[in-house]
Design a protein around this nucleic acid. Structure first.
Lengths: 127, 127
DNA sequence: TTGCTGCCTAGATAGATGTCAAATTAGAGG
DNA sequence: CCTCTAATTTGACATCTATCTAGGCAGCAA
């Protein structure tokens, strides 16, 4: 279940900030690649919005018309990108999001002249 | 040079918010797919951080060991994702970022009960 | 007109990726 | 031990994508 995190030093300053180095760009691109699939986005959403803060794989498989191995594959990609963590408890495996990861991404898209620099934007909902 | 924006209604509420619909997920995934390449990330960074707010293709080609058509391809992908806009002025073509797009993405990664930087979020949910 | 330059398009190709079926591992309980 | 269920791994396959070369189009200047 343990899986090394390939993306450790990734990012921090916004895209509109100083020049992005080659290595940094490769790492960041890896994270976005993990997010570039509709199924993975919905999985992440389901995990992040679970009332208990975690979701069992058994609950994640149902909503999709995909086989178990495919869901497992997508979870592995998210795990490898450092976006979620998995934990086995008895027969079932539960996944949680890694909040620091999401927070960092948020700062990436901050533009100059925008309030909240260097941190997450406020919690205002646009919907 | 005009290119329809395939991703118009994309996103708004955070990933930790209400259930992500299938269509919404597909659109969002498209944007992240555009961001999932190191070259495109660096291109976006170069455009977003240009002092004048725009960058000429002629300036974007040099820093990479890639041919012109390849850079052109990547710019097209970013354009199709609605992240940048291109404009021809005389011989040269200039690209600018679409700020609304980046701002929206920022909100996506907001977590409930988050006030500031990087720390562990509390468990409170807003909504 | 002709030529030159900047940028894009078209077509081809090697490599990456999403999906499934089959096999494997881990735990719970006979 | 054996069996059942949950989840992952393996291997194969079709599709997608990043890159290149060759060619086309637009603008500028003789």
């Amino acid at each position: 279940m343990e899986l090394e995190d390939v993306t450790a030093p990734v990012c921090c300053s916004p895209l509109s900030g100083p020049t992005l180095g080659g290595d940094e760009a490769v790492e960041l691109a890896g994270v976005f690649k993990a997010l570039s699939d509709p199924v993975r986005l919905r999985l992440l959403n389901m995990i992040a919005s679970a009332p208990s803060g975690e979701a069992c794989v058994c609950d994640l498989t149902g909503p999709f018309e995909l086989t178990g191995p495919t869901i497992s594959h997508h979870l592995k990609v998210l795990r490898k990108a450092g976006l979620i963590n998995g934990e086995r408890r008895g027969t079932w495996v539960y996944y949680q999001v890694v909040p620091e990861r999401l927070t960092r991404l948020s700062g990436l898209f901050t533009l100059p002249g925008q309030a909240g620099r260097g941190g997450a934007p406020d919690a205002r909902r646009l919907r």
